[in-house]
Design a protein around this nucleic acid. Structure first.
Lengths: 329, 329
DNA sequence: TTGTAGGCGTTATCAC
DNA sequence: GTGATAACGCCTACAA
């Protein structure tokens, strides 16, 4: 791959002149410019961004750490981030944390070494403890997908989303409520509070299912459902789990949404295309990505403004046949 | 972010000494080493990989261009590649071509500018024409997921996979055959040949559906199925399309697999978890990723060996209830 | 064992 | 308008 210095030698000018030409600096003789440009084209010159980075102290690299790229929600997020970043001249280094905090820390070190200009983080865990290392980061960063106390974040309120689901399930007259996911998940916190506020006795009527394996979890759930003679409202922590849940319920011969109504999370194509369609909480991923880039670039430009900014977007409930028998599908 | 030079000043040694210490060069006074290491730790020194790259002519960056990260198959592939690359000390720059050759070319230029050490390509189109620019690349590259004439590729044979599907559908006594996808897709070529070899009159009994939009495609297909009084065997070009196809069929009140048997491609979690489960062609993604890294590293080390290597992995058919009424699920 | 000198490919700041 | 020169942070001689 040819360098400016070589181009300069070939074109018979000095290397800085080549630099000027290639960067469109007007103060250069048109004839010389033409000669250099021809030369560059002929040799397929490609600027060395590494060298430019070293000098300019800017890599035009952004990093994204996500827990699981193969989760369609994160995949779509990455896709949107890559698109928006690309528009602004940035490329994206992708790191899959596998929900493993250790890996997160490893990648944190690595992206610092690559001197990326910024970081998008979808944290593996949300506790303040594990986010501590990120606060010591000198690189601008931003949490996407969730609210984090004292970190810039672009998110939908998972509490409110949980509440929304609660409200919907109460609306359709579910009498028992099941949550497939972790107790400490904010979706659950909002779900529980929502139910309580609507007069549900959550100690009696709300059950959390989350065992070591998904199989275990679902078999417990199926057992619970079979002994039930009122309508159940089930809230799964994401669409992928909702899909298996749906599977399990139908396999057990339980009527959806008659006996069990199911709600998923993320409104990925999965929930849109199963049979019955799964009601799911929809996040505005495109807008989230756009705002994320915008805010990160701002943070990069302004330097580390000390005030934390939280941008809350609103989630919507995409209602489908898994909770409403007369839904479109 | 502190540099070696500053560390050197603080520790009262020369910068190369710091370099030696940090790189574990044994020929350095233990006391000095300790002093430097303490200093480095205290100031959270992180080596500047950009500078190291510039000097060493190696970035430890790999690029991956895929058509659509949000397709679960590619998402899983990326995840696997990232994992395997990480093990070998490489990070991955991700580019989404959106099935757009222009974008592919744009990214091709960009990744050259970043001086990545290698490239994984899942091409947007497979014709020799559009792959030409890649052949002029001085960076080692590798096609994943598909066979390409004179380019190193790690792949499963889509023809053979199509043939396998044909054989399975004939086995279960389908009498009409539908393909949801592009005619020029190798899956289709293999599918058609497979059918012919099994004595099917493909001009009469094989129909391709692929309109401008998926909706159109599926409504045409549904119309075709309704007028049919023999069993249909449907082959969809990937699991995502298979999912919508499944949806359409069941919505039209057509029995699966009784009247219509459905086969998808990629064996993603989608096909594993729908109701009925979708029979799908399974690719060994993990192995593909492992071999891909291995071969790329080899190519990087050996320099551009001129001989093209094709590594063909074998696909399997994961049979489910969408083609076999007594399948496990 | 350690320091000095040079180079990687840019960009920026000077003179001329 | 153009060419030296230095700088970015690191590594690798080479010299002491």
């Amino acid at each position: 791959m040819i360098t400016m210095t070589e181009l300069a030698r070939i074109a018979g000018v000095s290397q800085p002149t080549v630099s000027r030409v290639l960067n469109g600096n007007p103060s250069v003789n048109p004839d010389v410019a033409k000669r250099v440009l021809d030369c560059a084209k002929q040799h397929n010159y490609q600027p060395n961004l590494i060298a430019r980075s070293l000098n300019g102290n800017k890599t035009y690299l952004l990093a994204a750490i996500v827990p699981d790229i193969s989760n369609p929600y994160f995949a779509e997020l990455i896709k949107a981030l890559e698109r928006e970043a690309g528009k602004m001249g940035y490329s994206i280094l992708i790191f899959n944390s596998d929900y493993d905090h250790e890996k997160e820390l490893h990648y944190l070190k690595l992206l610092q070494q690559y001197r990326v200009d910024g970081l998008f983080l979808a944290p593996a865990c949300e506790d303040a403890q594990s986010l501590l290392p990120f606060h010591q980061l000198s690189i601008p960063w931003l949490v996407v997908t969730n609210y984090i106390e004292n970190a810039d974040s672009i998110y939908i309120s998972h509490e409110k989303a949980g509440q929304m689901v609660a409200s919907h399930l109460v609306d359709i007259k579910a009498k028992r409520f099941l949550f497939i996911g972790r107790r400490k998940d904010r979706k659950f916190i909002g779900f529980e509070r929502g139910l309580r506020e609507l007069g549900v006795d959550t100690r009696q009527c709300l059950t959390v299912f989350w065992e070591e394996t998904l199989e275990e979890t679902l078999s417990l759930m199926a057992g619970y459902l079979e002994d039930l003679n009122v309508r159940a409202g089930i809230f799964a922590t994401n669409d992928m789990d909702a899909l298996v849940t749906l599977h399990t319920i139908v396999n057990a011969g339980i009527d959806i949404p008659g006996k069990a109504a199911l709600v998923g999370f993320d409104n990925t194509f999965i929930s849109q295309r199963t049979l019955p369609g799964i009601t799911s909480v929809s996040q505005p991923i495109g807008e989230m990505a756009r705002l994320a880039i915008e805010h990160l670039l701002l943070k990069m430009k302004e330097g580390a403004g000390t005030d934390v900014s939280h941008v809350e977007l609103t989630a919507k409930l995409a209602v489908r046949a898994s909770t409403l028998s007369d839904a479109a599908f």
